[in-house]
Design a protein around this nucleic acid. Structure first.
Length: 421
RNA sequence: GGAGGCGUCGCCUAGUCCGGUCUAUGGCGCCCGCCUGCUAAGCGGGUUGAGGGUCAAACCUCUCGCGGGUUCAAAUCCCGCCGCCUCCGCCA
């Protein structure tokens, strides 16, 4: 949700942002009109209500015919107040509905266009030079690490078991991510993965992404696709204190995604699955600090990718490919040798005050309160296994373990196939 | 699943039975000022949030968990919901 004052004071900025995203511009004028009519109907209601209240005070003091006359007038007035209130409520609701339509205003410098219009900021590390490339599933199966056949038997397609070193590596990635986060001052959090509709809506996931989300109809709860949802809801309806700097949380959770629109895409292995684990960074900070905080989150992501010894590139995601909440988004993509392409491993979004406004998260300001900025970024997921296995594979089908992960696999520096590959 | 209790402006709390004087009491904490070698104590004032309005103010409206209802009038009466607590049952 955008700040109405921005829409009133600088509608052209909102129009330009909508245009860059390839989204509707007309909503700006509809919003301005709805705001106008809300204020008019509200003023009318408040005028009548004030009159009703002062009349109400005279009644207990009056008596006889005079009192009866006052009662008659008050009764008429009560009906008028009720009608005016209904009109004002209706206008408010119309405005609230419209206010949910525009996406966050993009930050200057975000590339225009769609999915393919990203800008590559940098490429880090060496892509491996492999004669024979095995993909992550082939490697994972031979190491006894990944079992998608039994995953499908038990739960269906896009489910999997991680076994043996697979389970250990996943725990290693996540634990390492958590340790790094705590070291950097984040508060570690294990979050709920079922959330109420208001929280899901507040984070902006019920709009264009609604099909992606599992819903438990009987209980009116949603399964989260990322702990960002729970961490954003953590301080909902609160006034937080940012005087000692940003509030930083590292969430650990299972993540659930329906992958409704991706039939036939990445069906092999564990690249695109219905359930995985993730460590997510989440920051609450002052609006003016958000851009710098975004760079810091990106820095922590890159440090984690470095620890995994992975070749990756950083892209500045184009406006049309941002989620509705994000004003800017950087993705880190690791090299995927089996497909000779880049694979998204992390994504960090600066949501400025967009989420906080919906979730009613504020801080004290010189005068009153104001919405805070929220940001999120990935520090490790199950998917990282894919890049780790493929980039560190050796000619004989074994896999070298990055230094930082060795403690999690019993100190081993190489993982050997458990049966003929 | 069943029974009961509770939810008031940061925290605690008065008010709810019996509707109007609630423009919500008092304490703690916090902020400003006074007093005072310093500190403490004492004294005075301020201290929920949102919206409207205004150059700014004044001022107005809403806000007693949330949403409805009754009434000229609701913290107070009625209904529904949510949350927390206690007990019982069931299950891990």
């Amino acid at each position: 949700m955008l700040d109405l004052r921005v829409i009133r004071d600088d509608p052209d900025r909102v129009r330009a942002s909508q245009r860059a995203r390839g989204e509707t511009e007309e909503v700006v004028d509809e919003l301005l009109a709805a705001d106008e009519s809300r204020r008019a109907s509200l003023a009318e209601f408040e005028r009548l209500r004030a009159e009703q209240k002062s009349l109400g005070k005279e009644i207990p003091r009056a008596s006889g015919d005079e009192k009866q006359a006052l009662l008659d007038r008050a009764k008429d007035l009560a009906a008028a107040v009720k009608a005016a209130e209904a009109a004002a409520d209706g206008a408010q609701r119309r405005l609230d509905e419209l206010a949910m339509v525009p996406s966050n205003i993009i930050i200057d410098g975000v590339p225009e266009g769609g999915e393919d219009d990203y800008v590559v900021l940098r490429e880090v590390g060496e892509r491996p030079d492999l004669e024979k490339v095995r993909d992550h599933l082939e490697l994972g199966e031979s190491l006894g690490a990944i079992d998608t056949e039994r995953g499908a038997k038990v739960s269906g397609s896009r489910f999997y078991f991680l076994t043996g070193v697979g389970a250990q590596l996943e725990l290693g990635i996540l634990n390492l991510a958590m340790s790094k986060a705590v070291e950097a001052g984040f508060t570690p959090v294990i979050t709920p993965t079922l959330v109420r509709p208001e929280i899901m809506a507040g984070t902006g996931f019920l709009g264009a992404h609604a099909d992606e989300i599992y819903r438990l109809e009987r209980d009116d709860l949603y399964l989260v696709g990322t702990s960002e949802v729970a961490l954003a809801g953590f301080h909902a309806d609160e006034i937080v204190d940012l005087s000692d700097g940003p509030l930083r949380y590292a969430g650990w959770s299972a993540c659930y995604r329906r992958e409704a629109g991706s039939h036939g895409k990445d069906t092999r292995g564990i690249i695109r699955v219905h359930q995985f684990h993730k460590v997510e960074m989440f920051s609450y900070c002052r609006e003016e600090d958000a851009a710098a905080e975004h760079e810091r989150l990106l820095g922590w992501e890159e440090s984690m990718l470095g620890a995994m010894e992975l070749p990756y590139r950083v892209i500045d995601v184009a406006a049309g490919d941002l989620g509705s909440s994000a004003a800017r988004k950087f993705d880190c993509e690791a090299w995927l040798p089996s497909q000779s392409r880049w694979l998204e491993l992390t994504s960090t979004s600066n949501c400025t005050t967009f989420q906080a406004r919906r979730l009613n998260i504020r801080e004290r300001a010189e005068k009153g309160t104001r919405s805070v900025g929220t940001l999120n970024g990935t520090l490790g997921t199950t998917r990282w296994l894919v890049a780790i296995l493929e980039n560190h594979q050796l000619p004989d089908g074994s896999v070298a373990v990055p230094q930082a992960l060795r403690p999690y696999v019993g100190g081993r520096d190489v993982l050997e196939p458990v049966r003929a590959g």
